[in-house]
Amino acid sequence: MTTTAPSEPTTFHDPHKHRRITYIIVAAVAVVLVILGLAMYNRAERNQAAEDKADQLIALFQAQDLPVPDRDQIIRVFGDDGGAMCDDPGNALKKAVRDGLGSNGAAGPGQRPVFIAQRTIEGEKLALSVYCPDQLPAFQTYVNGLDLSDVVKG
C-alpha cells in the first residue's frame, strides 16, 4: 500500500465574496445616479412671477368658463417660465401625444380618431399666451389642421 503525500491545499474563490463585491459596486453606482438625478432635477420655481402668471392664467380660464386647476398645481407645473409646455410645443412627440388624446382610447385596430374638444385646445392656447406667447403662432398653425368640436361641456 502506498501513501501519497498531502498535496497543497486547493484555493477556491469564495462566491459570497464576489457577490458582496458586486452588491457594493451596484449600490455605489445607484447612489451616484441618485445624487446626479437630484443635482440635475429642475424644479419649477415658486416665486412672485410664478404666482402672478398662475393668477393671470386662472383669470383667463374663469373668463372663458373653463375648469380651473388648483393654483398651487399650476405654479408647480409651469413655474415662472412655462416648464415643459414652452420647450418647443410644436415638436413631433408633443404633437403625437396630442393626436393620441384625440382618439377613442382603444389600441390596435380598434383605435379610431374622435373629435378633439375645442375647450381643451382653448385651455392650452390660454396657457401658451401667458407663459410663452412667442410659441402661440406655431401652435395655432398646428390647431388649424385639427377637426375640433364642442364635445365637452363644463
Rank of each mutant, 00 (worst) to 15 (best):
D55E: 02
E45T: 11
K94Q: 14
A106V: 07
D52L: 08
I121S: 07
D134V: 08
Q73R: 15
R98M: 15
E51P: 00
L93C: 07
V114M: 14
G82L: 05
L57R: 00
A63L: 12
Q62T: 14
N47F: 01
Y131H: 01
D80T: 02
G154W: 11
P133F: 06
I121D: 07
N144C: 04
Q73S: 15
V97T: 10
K95V: 06
N104S: 05
D99F: 10
D52S: 09
A127F: 09
Q56S: 10
G105L: 06
A106N: 07
K53M: 11
V68N: 04
L136H: 08
G100W: 05
Q135Y: 03
E124S: 03
G83T: 01
A96N: 15
Q73C: 11
L148E: 04
G83C: 01
D134M: 10
L148P: 03
D80F: 03
D65W: 10
G90R: 09
L66V: 12
T141S: 14
S103C: 09
N104T: 10
G79E: 02
D134Y: 04
P69Y: 15
R71S: 00
A50T: 00
Y131V: 01
P67S: 08
R46M: 01
D81F: 05
D80K: 01
Q64V: 09
G90V: 15
G110M: 14
P69Q: 13
E122F: 04
K53A: 02
Q62S: 08
D70P: 02
N91G: 12
N144D: 08
G108Y: 10
K153V: 05
Q56I: 05
V77E: 12
N47R: 05
K53T: 03
G110D: 14
I58P: 00
A84Q: 05
A63Y: 10
A50K: 00
R71G: 00
P69K: 13
K95L: 11
G79K: 02
R119L: 05
E45P: 05
A96M: 15
Q64C: 11
R98G: 11
Q56Y: 02
Q48L: 07
G110K: 14
